[in-house]
Design a protein around this nucleic acid. Sequence first.
DNA 1: GACTTTGGTGACGAATTGTTACTAATTCGC
DNA 2: GCGAATTAGTAACAATTCGTCACCAAAGTC
Lengths: 231, 231
Amino acid sequence: MRDRPLALTKPAARRTALAVDVVVLSPRSDTLAVLLSRAGGAARERWSLPWDTPRPGEGLEDAAARVATTVLGVTPVFFEQIGALADARRHPGDADVSIGIAALVPSDVHGGTRDAEWFPLDDLPALPPRHRTVVDRAASVVRQRVDQSPLAFRLLPSTFTLSHLQSVYELLLGRRLHKASFRRALQASYLVEPTDEWRGEGRGRPAQLFRYAPRKRRGVRRGVRFDLFMD
Amino acid sequence: MRDRPLALTKPAARRTALAVDVVVLSPRSDTLAVLLSRAGGAARERWSLPWDTPRPGEGLEDAAARVATTVLGVTPVFFEQIGALADARRHPGDADVSIGIAALVPSDVHGGTRDAEWFPLDDLPALPPRHRTVVDRAASVVRQRVDQSPLAFRLLPSTFTLSHLQSVYELLLGRRLHKASFRRALQASYLVEPTDEWRGEGRGRPAQLFRYAPRKRRGVRRGVRFDLFMD
DNA sequence: GACTTTGGTGACGAATTGTTACTAATTCGC
DNA sequence: GCGAATTAGTAACAATTCGTCACCAAAGTC
């Protein structure tokens, strides 16, 4: 094997059935929800992730945007790659390779078509096995990236209260956070700026509205963390 | 558009030229090095990443392993997905979509064939544009994941000194770390265990050898960090 | 045996983080 | 009107983590 010439296959020789599977995520009624589309006649499961094959020359995020727009009626504002999957699990279109992409939709966007419905992330109907894996990986990627990528801000309207922001972080991380710590860390991060609007939700003191406005900040070079995820 | 029926394309209708581009990484002479393979006759650049089209039914990491084994003569021990790329940049095999995979090779593995050579990551020859992007993304993914994934341990022999481990972390992060802090954090992480062997490198006191042996540890639930990367 | 080099650790002050407790501004019930 | 309830926002203290310095240990070199 070592001395076999490097006659790598010409790409024209093999072509692959490729799918972009889109995990459209949004906070709906206090849970993180996924948009599923109703499957057609012969399908084994009644629901699946929206997906399609990318068109020639189309970028992957563009394909994801197109797919999401079709089922949602609106174009999501942010996309994050989940990873590629080529295992033996069944895909609704028998794609050899799936590329999973998370599409984030702010909580105030009220899209949805007749053939698509929101389901809580932790209470999904039966899905084609490959899609089940894609969703699971999406959830885990999203959880791991909350503090490296502005995911939480993309799940909120353009202005929001700090309590709302905190509750989205809690949704994504799956645990409660302390108010004072959360705000102190946010303050230090220079990621939001206050607007001069306030919103009263009914009960309680009105909250100031903030917007996502990341600013340059001096390099925070912390030491190594050894935060290996072992589950 | 909203009311267009969800006639998603049948996968058989469109097939894609897919490439798995492999970034084989290993510490070589105090830098992080990439294994490049010599390009054939008509290619514009003399070097490229090793790559191939996955075979039917073959997993992506399996394809990466096969490609890496071909150019290295040995099979890498660890793979990490970099992401999928479908931009307009030129690929040596004109693939529509590239899936980048990092393959990690310990520093004591002396593979390499006549048609492949190690290059320092920060001093690479001209590469096909798509491959240039894949390498850049690999570097950035690796840097971002050092403390979530046992990358550093896969770049070392099965037993190693803590100084070696630290120097790999420094290579990956691109900056110096403090010895005492590094060891304290490592201690707290329960990721390594000492062997009863010691190694003298010539000068200086011999160092104890450790092996990677992650153990369960009580949940360290830190608060949110807001470590957004903005560059 | 003194000097150099690399390994390894204790300890202290600084910085960060978890927590408690308080003040502020609003609605609700009476 | 007015106290209770509810949500927002913050100061301040305690606990923990982190960066750094200082030192000791064990080898080779001269």
